[in-house]
Design a protein around this nucleic acid. Structure first.
Length: 696
DNA sequence: GCGGACTCTCTTTTT
DNA sequence: GAGAGTCCGC
């Protein structure tokens, strides 16, 4: 406890009952939560396995475990910790049968989920311009986040389509495939507790204390999950920062943290406002941005570090110019003695990584991109896992259909439909049915599967009880590896490389004596790169702002601080709430930085083959040049600035060119010539005297 | 059923 | 501008 300041200590030692810990960015949140767990164990005599610690990401869960082992040793002493999804899945494995699912059900990933929704719409003869698959998927997700099953969902008519009915069909199909989607993991846990008092009581009795990290990002169904679990002892400790709530689109409701004290009567509240991470200059900027938001717990980050150098804002010509300026800055930081791994580029949209990647590669700067297509989402990995699951007697129909024609075995759409029907009629699990196929007794299109079925069945005998064996042989002898070659040599080499990585991963994981089903769970829940060995490599990190939550770097660059990108175009539809969340996103980005911070804006940005002329983000206005150094060629104010209310960065309106922003000027008096970046008309240089510009 | 060429869409963030 | 979807001839 000696490591803690008084606020942290009070939070860590707080007594029973609901506790709200409002922890600003960089205020030692994880340290406090770890010490609270340590305190519960060593001072209050709570058994470690009766403490449940919930996080949102696998990375945060791993971090928590590591810090716990550091503090109390012994592998964290048996504290139960994991993401909402991982813990839910663990519970469902035990109780799935109460929901009418076999215990061996699998998780469906985003890709297969999308394909399923499409198939349902096709079967129902609904064209995508009438109801878009992604809209339906989104609507169903939305219901699930709100805790509504297909029966409880509100009736909703969309262009004459009954959405609730389709939700129902979707759930039926999932059930037929013995699959749950990500949201089901949480919702089904809640349903389990709602409908089975016995199970609910058993779960409530399993834990004495529940702690939740990043509480600002809980959605209603997660809230109910916690409520059901903590009914009785009410020992719920939540840690979070309403200013960092950035998952509204995933159903997160910021009111859970704003109104915690009302929802949980008698709750203790603790505020951690001392920031140990960033320089005072960076915190000034962060505070200036976030204090403009209205619905928030009133608090302010207090610096403990030195003043530091002022953050900078650079305006660039286009995304390539931006990337080049970024490369120059990274090199400059390197010369100052910062390591590459202490630098990060955090963007709003993953698409922004394209130009950055290109320029960084040309500049021979070491970088790595976090995010994008995850390891377990790759085509060859999904194929291989499908083979592996069938080999290890846990593969389902979706997996059989996935590999039935890879490599080509002459089974097209019709053949696959027939296979699905045959499998369903057999009443067997897909992996069991393979035995029938191998005997040549399945008939129809299954005839084409006889060789592969025989291969699998014979390999099963060979590997016996060793799930880490046989995969590569199966891929080789089935002709799968050969079929990859059709993609071209280089591409195939990369994919085969991935398959070897998978093989190593299987061997490594199987040392922990997991069952094949448990292994598949891990693959389903694990995001790529999170626990990658590449974490240790000395490279600049590129990732989305969302992914950066919870991380910190000495040097941070936030590219694309523009209208349309930050705030994002799509967020504007949500009005004030949308803008507020975008502002928090910028706040999260700023507070990732310890020492150095650079914001950039491009005057021209090409997106989807179209050219845009974005204006600087509205948030720039909240960061005065006193706290954000504007990097402009001529930083003096214009003579008539006070009179016309204009200067560099001012938004203006022109009678024919429309809206724009002043990016530069030259000359003086009547001869002032301004450079204006118009939203639609592009860059124009105009005589201020005659241009009839109006300040907006 | 397959493969090639063509068209068309769809572009925020993730467990 | 790329990836997915569709059509068509073999």
């Amino acid at each position: 406890m000696a490591d803690l300041n008084s606020a942290q200590q009070a939070a860590a030692e707080a007594g029973n009952g609901p506790q709200l810990i409002l922890a600003g960015a960089g205020s030692g949140k994880t340290r406090t939560i770890v010490h609270r767990i340590g305190h519960l164990i060593s001072h209050r005599g709570i058994a470690p396995h009766r403490i449940l610690a919930v996080t949102f990401t696998n990375k945060a869960a791993a971090e928590l475990k590591a810090r716990l082992s550091q503090l109390i040793g012994d592998d964290g002493g048996g504290v139960v910790s994991g993401t909402f999804h991982a813990i839910s899945l663990r519970l469902l494995r035990r109780y799935a049968e109460a929901l009418g699912y076999p215990r061996s059900f699998q998780v469906i990933d985003a890709d297969d989920q999308k394909a399923l929704v499409k198939r349902i719409l096709k079967q129902a003869n609904i064209a995508s311009d009438r109801l878009h698959p992604s809209y339906l998927r989104g609507w169903i997700e939305h219901c699930k986040h709100a805790g509504q099953t297909a029966e409880q969902a509100p009736a909703c008519d969309w262009n004459g389509v009954d959405l609730r009915g389709l939700y129902h069909t979707y759930q039926q199909q999932l059930r037929e495939h013995e699959r749950m989607d990500f949201s089901d993991l949480i919702l089904n846990c809640v349903v389990l507790m709602r409908e089975h008092a016995g199970i609910a009581e058993a779960l409530q009795r399993s834990f004495d204390h529940v702690l939740v990290d990043e509480y600002q990002d809980t959605n209603p169904v997660q809230h109910e999950w916690l409520t059901l679990l903590c009914t009785g002892h009410r020992n719920l400790t939540v840690v979070g920062d309403d200013d960092q709530s950035i998952y509204g689109w995933r159903g997160a409701d910021i009111r859970h943290i704003l109104e915690f004290e009302r929802i949980w009567s008698g709750a203790g509240t603790h505020r951690l406002e001392e920031n140990y991470r960033s320089t005072a200059a960076i915190l000034d900027l962060a505070n200036a941005v976030i204090c403009k938001n209205e619905d928030r717990h009133d608090k302010c980050l207090r610096p403990t570090q030195e003043q530091g150098v002022p953050p900078q804002w650079k305006v660039c010509n286009d995304e390539y110019d931006e990337a080049r300026k970024i490369a120059v800055q990274l090199n400059a930081w390197c010369d100052m003695g910062y390591a590459w791994q202490e630098m990060a580029i955090l963007y709003r949209s993953n698409r922004q990584s394209l130009a950055l990647e290109q320029i960084l590669r040309e500049s021979s700067l070491p970088y790595r991109i976090v995010g994008g297509v995850g390891f377990f989402e790759r085509l060859e990995i999904k194929d291989a896992l499908a083979y592996w699951a069938l080999l290890n007697r846990c593969g389902d129909g979706l997996q059989l259909l996935r590999i039935c024609n890879r490599p080509k075995r002459g089974i097209g759409t019709k053949g696959q439909e027939q296979l699905a029907a045959l499998l369903s009629a057999s009443g067997l699990r897909a992996h069991e049915w393979l035995d029938v196929v191998a005997d040549g007794k399945a008939g129809g299109a299954a005839g084409k599967l006889v060789p592969i079925a025989r291969l699998i069945v014979s390999l099963r005998d060979e590997i016996g009880n060793m799930p880490d064996r046989g995969l590569m042989e199966l891929l080789e002898r089935s002709g799968y590896l050969q079929s990859l070659q059709a993609m071209g040599e280089i591409e195939a080499a990369g994919r085969i490389d991935n398959l070897h990585t998978l093989q190593r991963y299987i061997e490594l994981t199987m040392e922990q004596e997991l069952t094949p089903v448990e292994f598949m769970d891990r693959a389903a829940l694990l995001q790529s790169g999170e626990e990658d060995s590449r974490d240790n490599e000395n490279t600049v990190t590129l990732m989305s702002l969302h992914r950066a939550k919870g991380l910190e770097f000495d040097c941070v660059i936030l590219p694309g601080v523009e209208e349309g990108l930050l705030p994002h175009q799509r967020s504007l539809d949500d009005g004030e709430a949308g803008i507020a969340e975008e502002r928090r996103l910028l706040y999260v980005g700023i507070t990732r930085a310890r020492r150095q911070l650079l914001l950039t804006t491009a005057r021209l940005r090409r997106l989807f083959g179209e050219t845009h002329y974005p204006l600087p983000s509205r948030f720039i206005k909240d960061m005065s040049p006193a706290i954000l150094q504007h990097d402009m060629p001529t930083p003096q104010p214009m003579q008539d600035e006070s009179e016309a209310g204009m200067g560099i960065g001012s938004s203006v309106c022109h009678p024919s060119f429309g809206e724009g922003v002043i990016t530069d000027f030259e000359g003086a008096g009547d001869a002032i010539r301004v450079t204006v970046q118009f939203r639609k008309a592009g860059i124009k240089r105009l005589m201020l005297k005659y241009a009839a510009l109006q300040a907006v």
